[in-house]
Amino acid sequence: MITGANRGIGRELAERVLAQGDDVIALGRDRAAMAELGCRVVTADLSAPETLAGAVAGIDRLDALVHNAGIAEVGPVAETGLDTWQRHLTVNLAAPAELTRLLLPALRAASGHVVFVNSGVGLSAGPMWSAYGASKHGLKALADALRAEEQGNGVRVTTVYPGQVATEMQRALRESMGVPYDPRRAMSAGTAAEAIRYVLNVPAEATVHDLRIAPSDPVPHATSRRR
């Protein structure tokens, strides 16, 4: 299962996993876009985690769960309202936690693998990244706790920390921060997806706990909003 498989890293990953002969369950809101992949589609809204139980009912065996979907908005703490905080913590943290809880029996049955697609901001958040960074720091804590808890059940847990990726989300973030967008200085969504596919294909005798990948020549983030 791959969340956010309708575009960007999620779609690239889904295409690669399908190409290697595996089945994919694409989970997200954009059913039409996910249907283009030619795989099983589960329509669900991560902004409403309380609805996820009905969406994934009946899945009793799952080899891998990739938490790729997420949202990102930037701004100084002084201008970040409660709704922005709640939205980030719900979509980027509470929803992955709930989806993992619901699917743990299926993952245990398959000695499966949970992969959290985090961010470099999930390790160190600078100016403008408070809400997003907090949600991603929380996602790291979730992954670390889950790994320790599920090791005895045969479930592997990995966090992947991609740096700047050439997606429409990255373009929008750059514009809001006043930093020129240059996709040539970001890694492609395909490169990020290939790193995740590598993690998924590591033999079961080993677990990659954390993998950080970044573009070779990234554009520095702005330290403040352009006026």
Rank of each mutant, 00 (worst) to 15 (best):
Arg7Phe: 04
Ile9Thr: 06
Leu13Thr: 04
Leu18Gln: 10
Gly21Val: 02
Asp23Ile: 13
Ala26Val: 00
Leu27Ser: 01
Arg31Gln: 14
Ala32Asp: 09
Ala35Val: 12
Glu36Pro: 00
Cys39His: 07
Thr43Leu: 02
Asp45His: 04
Ala53Gln: 07
Val56Pro: 10
Val56Cys: 07
Arg61Tyr: 14
Ala69Leu: 06
Gly75Cys: 04
Ala78Pro: 03
Ala78Arg: 11
Leu82Val: 15
Arg87Glu: 10
Arg87Phe: 05
His88Phe: 01
Val91Pro: 00
Leu93Ile: 07
Leu99Trp: 02
Thr100Asp: 00
Pro105His: 05
Leu107Glu: 01
Ala110Gly: 08
Ser111Cys: 15
Gly112Asn: 04
His113Gly: 04
Phe116Asp: 04
Val121Cys: 05
Val121Trp: 03
Val121Gly: 01
Val121Lys: 02
Leu123Lys: 14
Ser124Val: 14
Gly126Arg: 09
Gly126Leu: 09
Met128Leu: 15
Trp129Asp: 15
Ser130Cys: 11
Ala131Phe: 05
Ala131Met: 07
Tyr132His: 13
Lys136Met: 01
Lys136Pro: 00
His137Pro: 11
His137Ser: 10
His137Val: 10
Leu142Asp: 01
Asp144Pro: 12
Ala145Cys: 09
Gly154Tyr: 02
Val157Cys: 10
Thr159Trp: 02
Val160Asp: 00
Gly163Ala: 08
Gly163Val: 05
Gln164Gly: 10
Gln164Pro: 00
Val165Asp: 08
Ala166Asp: 09
Thr167His: 12
Met169Pro: 07
Arg171Gly: 06
Ala172Gln: 15
Ser176Gln: 15
Met177Asn: 06
Gly178Arg: 02
Gly178Leu: 04
Pro180Gly: 13
Pro183Ala: 08
Arg184Tyr: 09
Ala186Val: 08
Met187Gln: 13
Thr191Leu: 13
Ala192His: 03
Ala193Met: 04
Arg197Ile: 14
Val199Ala: 12
Ala206Pro: 08
Thr207Ala: 11
Thr207Lys: 00
Asp210Ala: 12
Asp210Pro: 14
Ile213Asp: 05
Ser216Glu: 14
Pro218Tyr: 04
His221Trp: 13
Thr223Val: 11
Ser224Lys: 11
Arg226Cys: 09
